[in-house]
Simulated scan of single mutants.
Amino acid sequence: MASNPDGSRRWWRRGRPTPTPPAAPPEASDAELHDKVAELLARELGVADPATDNPAPVTPARIAAWMTDNQFSYFVDNDGDLGGLWRGRLFYFFLFGEKAEILQVRGQWHREIAIERLEEVLDICNEWNADRIWPKAYVRVRDNGRVHVVSEVATDLEHGVNDAQLSQMLFCGLSTGSMFFDALDERYPDPAGGAP
């Protein structure tokens, strides 16, 4: 019996029905697609707790409410800027940008440094900035020639932030600034704290 590959294929096909292409699935709405993607991500990444509040713009009132909720004392200065003391260091909370969408937590070390140590302190700030993301560390030289060391954490919140995210950003600015100032305290011990 001669082999006829084409003929045997035709014979095999004759016994089976012609496959019908699958029908196109009905188009899903954006909400259905969102739900399916959320379900897939939850299954793959683990279920996360849903947000309890929606992102909203940051305002001085929200920052003040956070300070009150966490039992921190704060003040509003003559320029309307919100500030407070954290572990004995002065911190300010600024909102910059066209729509006040950039939150900046700026701290100032509680001691001044002599101008003769400016280069040394700049090296410390540069080393810190090279090794760490937060805070940005820098100095300001005042008109009296004294050097003030500053920490800064800035975040663009153009699309708003919920309360938990705001709390995390404020704690980040305060705690990382304090870590930097603690490192300065170790480097430059306070003469009043040491034995004569």
Results as ranks from 00 to 15, higher is better:
19 P>R: 11
121 V>F: 12
25 P>N: 06
83 G>P: 01
47 V>N: 08
34 H>S: 13
106 R>K: 04
100 A>R: 03
32 E>S: 07
49 D>N: 13
97 G>P: 02
53 D>A: 12
84 G>W: 02
45 L>A: 13
89 R>G: 01
25 P>F: 02
104 Q>G: 09
46 G>L: 04
70 N>S: 12
11 W>L: 15
91 F>N: 00
119 E>M: 11
41 L>P: 02
39 E>P: 02
69 D>Q: 14
102 I>Y: 03
48 A>I: 03
121 V>N: 02
37 V>A: 15
1 M>D: 06
91 F>G: 00
43 R>K: 13
12 W>I: 10
100 A>C: 05
60 P>E: 11
43 R>C: 04
64 A>T: 03
7 G>V: 05
61 A>K: 08
6 D>I: 14
10 R>C: 06
71 Q>T: 10
23 A>F: 04
71 Q>M: 06
85 L>E: 08
26 P>C: 04
118 L>R: 11
98 E>K: 14
39 E>L: 14
64 A>K: 02
58 V>A: 00
109 W>L: 08
63 I>R: 00
49 D>S: 15
12 W>K: 07
9 R>L: 14
83 G>M: 02
95 L>D: 00
86 W>P: 01
47 V>D: 10
120 E>P: 03
16 R>L: 15
117 R>M: 12
40 L>A: 07
24 A>V: 11
41 L>D: 07
38 A>N: 09
113 I>C: 09
118 L>I: 06
49 D>F: 05
